[in-house]
Each structure stands twice: as C-alpha cells, then as structure tokens.
Computed example of a mutant assay.
Amino acid sequence: MKRIFLLLSVVSTLVFTSCNNDDDIIDTDTISEVFEVPNVNFIADGDFTVTIPLEPQIFTSDVVLVYRLSGTDPLGDDIWEQIPTTYFLDEGTLDYFTDFSRNSVSIYLDAEFDPLLRQDFSLNQVFRIVIVPGFFSNSVDVSDYDAVMNALNTSGNGVQVIETR
C-alpha cells in the first residue's frame, strides 16, 4: 500500500508541475493610447501654449510622452522628435516643453524672440501624444518613438486623430 501511495504521489506531482498556462496569459493592465493632434498653432493670445484635454482621464500612475512631427526621412516616413527639445536658430533659441495632469497635456513654445517670426515652428504643428502605463515607462527608452511603439506592440498607424479648436 505504501508503494502504491508513493507511486501515486510521484505521478500526481509530475502531472501538476508539468502543466502551465504561460502561453495563455492575456495582458489586461497594459492599456496604452496614441493620438495625433494636427494643426496646432502657438499664438500670442494663448501665451504660446496649447492645452489638449485627456478624455477619459488617465490613471495617476500613467506617463504621457509627447512627440513633434519634425519632418520625413528619405523614404517618406514621419520623423517624430520627443518633447522637450531645444533649437538653436539664427534668431536665438526656441524650446518646446510639456507637462501633463490626469486631465490634460499642455505644450509650450518658448523663444528668445517672437516665435511667430518662425512660423515653421509656431504654426500648423503636428504632435503625437502617447499614454503609457507607469510601470512600463521604466523598461523602455522613451526618447525613441519607434522603441515605444514596438514595445507597446503598435505601429502607430492606427492613431486616433484629435482636431484642435
């Protein structure tokens, strides 16, 4: 009887330890969102600031990354540059910087000169806003737009477009 009990114990141990469901894990807490905001104009009346509402609100642990469309590569693909960034121009320095809350993202344009003198930086700008779960942002190079999109398993092609007022 002891041998049968021992045999059953060994067999059941093997059966229960050899089964796992690692391939069936569904990630339900990595919720990211990417949206594009075209036709952004920085004007003096708005103190060269644009505020984009986040609807719905994001979680307090989420991180918001902002990228500016800075041009296209030789193949015609968009080049996204992370904000904050500084440009050293003939007129002086020009900076984009940003902040965010659970409710909105603000993008600021600051320059040593009147930013409207460089309409290629102040008018008709396009931004991509990427909402990333907080724990995830520690494991990826957030300064590389393509690395962020690849890590989130999205190409960025299914981007939601938000029209600005």
Rank of each mutant, 00 (worst) to 15 (best):
F5A: 15
F5V: 15
F5M: 13
L6A: 15
L7K: 10
L7H: 06
L8V: 13
L8E: 05
L8G: 06
L8T: 04
S9L: 15
V10R: 01
V11F: 15
V11P: 07
V11L: 15
T13Q: 00
T13N: 00
L14Q: 06
V15S: 13
V15G: 13
F16K: 00
F16I: 12
T17Q: 10
S18R: 10
C19W: 02
N20C: 15
N20R: 05
N21R: 14
D24F: 12
I25L: 13
I26G: 06
I26S: 08
D27L: 04
D27F: 00
T28F: 05
D29E: 06
D29C: 05
E33K: 12
V34G: 09
E36R: 10
P38L: 00
N39D: 02
N39V: 02
N39H: 05
N41K: 09
N41E: 11
N41P: 07
F42M: 01
I43A: 03
A44C: 00
A44H: 02
D45C: 02
D47C: 03
D47P: 00
D47E: 05
D47W: 03
T49R: 11
T49P: 03
V50S: 08
T51R: 13
I52Q: 01
P53T: 05
P56Q: 07
P56W: 10
P56D: 03
Q57P: 04
I58R: 11
I58H: 08
F59P: 07
F59H: 12
T60Q: 13
D62R: 11
D62S: 12
D62Y: 13
D62P: 10
V63F: 04
Y67E: 00
R68D: 05
R68C: 09
R68Q: 11
R68V: 13
G71H: 07
T72G: 09
D73K: 07
D73E: 02
D73T: 01
L75P: 02
L75N: 11
D77H: 02
D77N: 14
D78P: 04
I79F: 05
E81I: 06
